[in-house]
C-alpha cells in the first residue's frame, strides 16, 4: 500500500517511516511542508496520506489545508490527519465532503502501533476514524439534534464507536455483545437518522457526520 507522509519533525518522521515500512506500507514520499504535501499528493496519488496538521512555512494548519485541497481535486483521496491537539471543528471540516476515507487522530495514538496501523488501513479502505477524544468532547455536550436525541444510550455508544472507526466486529468486542446485535443497532441508528439503504456504503460516514453535526 502506497503512503505519502508529511511531518516536519525529523524524529517523528523517521519513526513513522520505519513503523509504516515495517507493516508493509510503501512510503513513496516523506515531505516537510504544506506545499510539498499538496504536490506529492497530486503527483503520487497514494492509497493513503498521513499528514501532520501543523506544517511549515507558517505552522498553522497547512497539513489540513493541503489535504483538503488535494481532496477537492482528487475526490475521496484517503487522508489521515495527525495532531498534537484534536479540535472537533477541524473534524467537521474533514468530513464535510461526505466522501469518507478520512481520519483524525492525536499523535499519541502512534504509540499504540497495532491500532494506529489499523486506523491507517481503515482510512485507506474508505472508512472513517475519529480520535476517541473528539468523540468524548462531542459526547460531553447535550444533544441538540432531535434525530440524535431519539437514540438510546446503547445506540449512542454504537455510533460513537462507529465514529472512532471500528468495524462491527470491533464494536461488538468493545460493548461485549454479538455482531448480530451490533448490526441490528446500526440499522436502527440509520433508520432514526433517516439514512436510507440506497445510500449504502456512505451511510456510516453520514451517520458519523450527523453525530459531529449535532449542533
Amino acid at each position: 500500500m502506497r503512503v505519502v507522509l508529511a511531518e516536519d519533525q525529523a524524529l517523528l518522521r523517521d519513526g513513522l517511516v520505519r513503523l509504516l515500512s515495517a507493516h508493509d506500507f510503501e512510503v513513496v514520499a516523506a515531505v516537510e511542508t504544506g506545499p510539498d504535501l499538496l504536490d506529492a499528493l497530486l503527483a503520487e496519488r497514494p492509497d493513503v496520506a498521513v499528514a501532520d496538521i501543523r506544517l511549515p512555512p507558517t505552522f498553522k494548519n497547512e497539513g489540513l489545508a493541503a489535504t483538503l485541497e488535494a481532496r477537492r481535486r482528487v475526490p475521496g483521496l484517503p487522508v489521515l490527519i495527525l495532531s498534537q491537539h484534536v479540535e472537533p471543528l477541524y473534524a467537521r471540516e474533514l468530513l464535510s465532503d461526505s466522501a469518507g476515507a478520512v481520519g483524525y487522530l492525536l499523535k499519541d495514538r502512534v504509540s499504540n502501533v497495532r491500532s494506529f496501523v489499523d486506523a491507517v488501513r481503515t482510512v485507506a479502505g474508505g472508512g472513517t476514524t475519529m480520535d476517541p477524544e473528539v468523540i468524548a468532547q462531542l459526547l460531553a455536550r447535550r444533544s441538540r439534534d432531535e434525530r440524535l436525541s431519539s437514540l438510546t444510550p446503547r445506540e449512542r455508544e454504537v455510533l460513537a464507536a462507529m465514529a472512532e472507526g471500528h468495524a462491527n466486529a470491533g464494536i461488538a468486542a468493545r460493548l461485549v455483545v454479538t455482531e448480530k446485535a451490533v448490526s441490528k443497532h446500526i440499522n436502527t441508528i440509520f433508520a432514526k437518522l433517516g439514512l436510507l439503504p440506497d445510500l449504502d456504503g456512505n451511510r456510516r460516514v453520514l451517520a458519523v457526520l450527523a453525530f459531529l453535526d449535532a449542533a
Partner: peptide
C-alpha cells in the same frame, strides 16, 4: 492551538461547537 492557527473568529466557533448549549 485553534486560536494560534485560525484567529479569534474560528477559535470562538470551536468554543461554541464544543459547548453543551447552542
Amino acid at each position: 492551538p485553534v486560536l494560534a492557527e485560525r484567529g479569534l473568529g474560528d477559535a470562538l466557533r470551536a468554543l461554541a461547537y464544543a459547548s453543551p448549549i447552542p
